[in-house]
């Protein structure tokens, strides 16, 4: 990852225009050729610096549900429960965190009632209570992560 890659990542965090040749505009602002921009983007994806390139959806506006959930998992069962939770396709990511509530994951579903079903299933499988904390308000973030 060099300074050109960094400028590409920073520029694309602001978003890509929805027009016929969106990459040309970005390439021009970065003083790159279209081919160089696309091949660098492909490499950043292949190297897993970027996990995805595309639309950022607003789940709630689409009628879906997105919730942050936490569980208190006994340390000796942590890996087993992690595998159980991760096996659900509705679980978008999952982190271990240093707190009594030590497993934190995000559930994304197309309809709100599906989230409740997933939470019930996880509680039943794991024997741990799921603390469900859907967002009530999102505060606008101006600047993105500079790399």
């Amino acid at each position: 990852m060099d300074s050109i890659d960094a400028s590409i990542v920073n520029r694309l965090q602001e978003g890509l225009p929805v027009c016929a040749r969106p990459f040309d505009e970005v390439a021009a602002t970065l003083d790159l050729s279209l081919d160089e921009l696309l091949s660098r983007l492909q490499r950043l994806l292949d190297d897993r610096v970027l996990s995805r390139f595309g639309p950022m959806f607003n789940a709630e506006k689409m009628g879906g549900a997105l919730s942050l959930c936490a569980m208190q998992v006994p340390v000796e069962r942590f890996d087993i429960v992690a595998a159980q939770v991760n096996a659900f396709p509705e679980v978008a990511h999952n982190y271990e965190r240093d707190h009594l509530l030590n497993m934190w994951f995000v559930i994304a579903t197309e309809r709100p009632e599906q989230a409740l079903a997933v939470i019930r299933d996880i509680e039943q499988l794991s024997g741990c209570r799921v603390y469900d904390m859907p967002k009530q308000e999102e505060f606008y973030i101006g600047l993105k992560l500079a790399v």
């Binding site: 694309l12 965090q13 602001e14 890509l16 027009c19 639309p55």
Partner: peptide
């Protein structure tokens, strides 16, 4: 496709077309 995506963006269903950065891969 462009008109429909622009409408979805206008309606706020799509926030933007962008990148998902792996913080850890960047040393964060």
């Amino acid at each position: 496709v462009i008109v429909r995506l622009a409408a979805l963006q206008q309606a706020g269903m799509i926030k933007r077309m962008g990148v998902v950065v792996k913080h850890r891969a960047l040393g964060y």
